[in-house]
Write a protein that binds this DNA or RNA. Sequence first.
DNA 1: CCGACTGATGTCAGTTGCTGTCATCACAGT
DNA 2: ACTGTGATGACAGCAACTGACATCAGTCGG
Lengths: 178, 178
Amino acid sequence: MELYGERGYEQTTVAEIANRAGLTERTFFRHFADKREVLFWGGGALQELLVSSVADAPESTAPIDAVAAAFEGAGARLQERREHSRQRQAIITANAELRERELIKLASFASALADALRRRGVADTAASLAAEVGIAVFRVAFERWIDTGQPDFPQLIRESFDELKVVTGHGRRRDLDR
Amino acid sequence: MELYGERGYEQTTVAEIANRAGLTERTFFRHFADKREVLFWGGGALQELLVSSVADAPESTAPIDAVAAAFEGAGARLQERREHSRQRQAIITANAELRERELIKLASFASALADALRRRGVADTAASLAAEVGIAVFRVAFERWIDTGQPDFPQLIRESFDELKVVTGHGRRRDLDR
DNA sequence: CCGACTGATGTCAGTTGCTGTCATCACAGT
DNA sequence: ACTGTGATGACAGCAACTGACATCAGTCGG
């Protein structure tokens, strides 16, 4: 992150990173699958948090609410290192390759969440929908958290899920709809 | 697509592609930013279709319904070349780099849709939400279209948007819970 | 009809991300 | 001391991508 922050992601060579760490280029690639991966180390922890949060939700909780609660928890975790999250995100949004990696991570979150929901007995499509939509809402909330100065991330998440219900709920029934 | 289909994406070298096309490797890179881009040529057309569809929706249409209708239109377009879509998707899902590129494309759709909604006077956050959530629903519907043999893609999209309303807590309850 | 200009292509050399292979070395268990 | 094991280094090599320059066909003003 030091080097990526100083000279930008593309301008930083793997040899430089390895050198600053006192290692060889070859050794770098033994620890990280590719140049981007350094920035995403530990992403697994957040995923586990999300999954266990969904798994542990009260049985009566509706799928979308379980997902929302999971993201609030994840949001709280991220908030503990707000400045770190901000810097990291600045680096990521500045580079296309990194944005791609970020999207893959989120897609992986979505499928893990969908699995967790299915284990609760939620039907296939409903599980996928709740998970994917949850990710979508989280993305919007995250962007607002970074862009606006607003400090309370979990609350932003909560508001965004509330607004989701408004956005989907006030839709006029279409004539196609039986 | 021929070569990617025959030998797989990773096993295919740019030199081979250029050769089969009767060109130089250098020329390939003058037309496509990178090796993946060949598969995503023409993605802009779909985006324009989505955007204009949202722009042209009746003024009274709710944001989420405008988005849903836009995707139905896009779905109809894709359905015209069902077999082509299937092959393309098989290649893409088989490779991580290509999946990443696909996600970037969808993210780009989302932001274009959000802009189109804002131009209709939809508030910032609501526009982002409707667009991102629309993409999420579309992804689920697309996967179902490819996986199940079901031919009618627009109808699948319609059903998925309907189920979204159920999942988010409005609409009729169906067989969601066990 | 000529020469300047333009745009697409070829050629070539070079950088960098990434991999396979083999040697080295520290350390743990026996 | 003997031996396996896991982490690292050294080195060669491939393929994606880029920059710089040459070539060549078409076109447009004179």
